[in-house]
Amino acid sequence: MALSAEQVLHIAELVKLALTDEEVALYQQQLSEILEHFDRLNELNTDAIPPTAQVADQQNVYREDRVREWLATEEALANAPDAADGFFRVRPVLEG
């Protein structure tokens, strides 16, 4: 199926990308082509087939809820674009 420019912008907003106009046009064409290829899956009747979400050897792995040593605050903040007073600093979330 072909995607409209509005649909591409909607998806871009879901994944928080500020696409340029050229990108919108490019992805409209490329994503449509790729999705069209995916339609081949409809050749298969899967009504009675359960989905596979993961293929790990075990399920529901639990561990004790116990505090253990991890990174020091400075280490955790070392890669932050902006930090102050032992916190990550972000731009305003609420106005005013």
């Binding site: 994944v15 928080k16 731009r91």
Partner: peptide, 24 residues
């Protein structure tokens, strides 16, 4: 998201703008 690590657009105004521009 440009908060804990990774690129963060210094021009962004609010947090949503920062997400969009940094990821873009």
């Amino acid at each position: 998201d440009g908060v804990r690590y990774g690129f963060c657009d210094p021009e962004a105004e609010d947090i949503w703008d920062a997400y969009r521009k940094s990821r873009e």
